[in-house]
């Protein structure tokens, strides 16, 4: 190992807290000890990563409070040292980390709040697409409409919550005291998407979630109508499907895909 690579490995290990082994690399400082100078880098590492997490998970930071958030951030940084040159992606493991963390096993809303914030972040700067418009829809030959297929734009996803994490998120956003965490009777399907440059979310009903899942799977419109007819009143299935379609198009989350040959 060269002296440069050895120096870098030892200093990095010291900053990561894997061993206080770097002091003899450091020249005496005119003011303060070698240790005090190294402390600048040691402290900055933890503070900076905590700040990255705080930027990505603002609501979670408020929900946990500064002390618990900082402790959680230290634990996360120890479990997942940054492996990316872009700070934007450092926090990507946080929802999974929180779900598995012993400290939050009794608080599933914590991981789900993080999951929701991550989804909002991911659609915010997710890939671009040109969404289908109502004008595009009007141009489709009515006799061919049954064969039409759509896909979801890349900056759109659904996530599932089993706690009232969305209510907690909304209360924090309004600077209100969040409700007590509680489990839901039924899992909640949350649509998260980008519209006019901003991230949004809303809770989907069971039928709409099923229909949107069919769209994502690439089923054509006629098949989706048939699925809705089996779910509820068959007489109004086509109307319900058309209403969902209009809502998704107005939300700018669909792109047209070629009909299957």
């Amino acid at each position: 190992m060269s002296s440069l690579s050895d120096l870098q490995a030892r200093l990095q290990a010291d900053i990561l807290g894997e061993g206080r082994d770097a002091e003899d690399l450091i020249a005496p400082a005119p003011h303060g000890s070698r240790a005090s100078r190294l402390d600048v880098y040691r402290r900055a590492y933890v503070l900076r990563l905590t700040e990255f997490l705080g930027n990505d998970y603002e609501k979670l930071r408020i929900y946990l409070g500064e002390t618990r958030f900082s402790r959680m951030a230290r634990d996360y940084a120890a479990a997942h040292p940054s492996d990316t040159p872009n700070a934007r992606w450092f926090s990507r493991h946080l929802p999974a980390f929180l779900r598995q963390s012993k400290a939050f096993l009794q608080h599933p809303e914590v991981g789900e709040l993080a999951m929701l914030e991550q989804a909002l972040n991911d659609v915010f700067d997710g890939p671009e697409a040109v969404p289908t418009t109502l004008a595009d829809l009007a141009a489709i030959d009515p006799t061919a409409f049954g064969n039409v297929r759509f896909a979801l734009v890349p900056a759109c996803m659904t996530v599932e919550a089993r706690s009232n994490a969305t209510s907690i998120w909304s209360a924090i956003r309004c600077a209100e005291t969040p409700p007590a965490a509680e489990p839901l009777d039924m899992p909640q399907h949350i649509l998260v998407w980008r519209q006019a440059g901003s991230s949004r979310f809303r809770i989907l009903g069971e039928e709409e979630f099923m229909a949107l899942s069919c769209v994502a799977e690439g089923l054509d419109f006629a098949t989706i109508c048939e699925m809705l007819a089996t779910y509820d009143d068959p007489e109004t299935a086509a109307l319900r499907a058309a209403n969902y379609l209009r809502g998704w198009i107005e939300a700018e989350i669909l792109v047209r895909t070629p009909a299957a040959s």
Binding site: L4, Q8, Q12, Y41, Y45, R48, S82, D83, P85, A87
Partner: peptide, 25 residues
């Protein structure tokens, strides 16, 4: 500067030793 080795990024601007080895590198 360097920001990390061995697959880790410290997200800090760490100084270089002012040596011939570092200069060449």
């Amino acid at each position: 500067c360097w920001t990390g080795v061995h697959g880790v990024n410290l997200h800090d601007l760490l100084p270089v030793p002012y040596t011939e080895e570092a200069l060449a590198h």
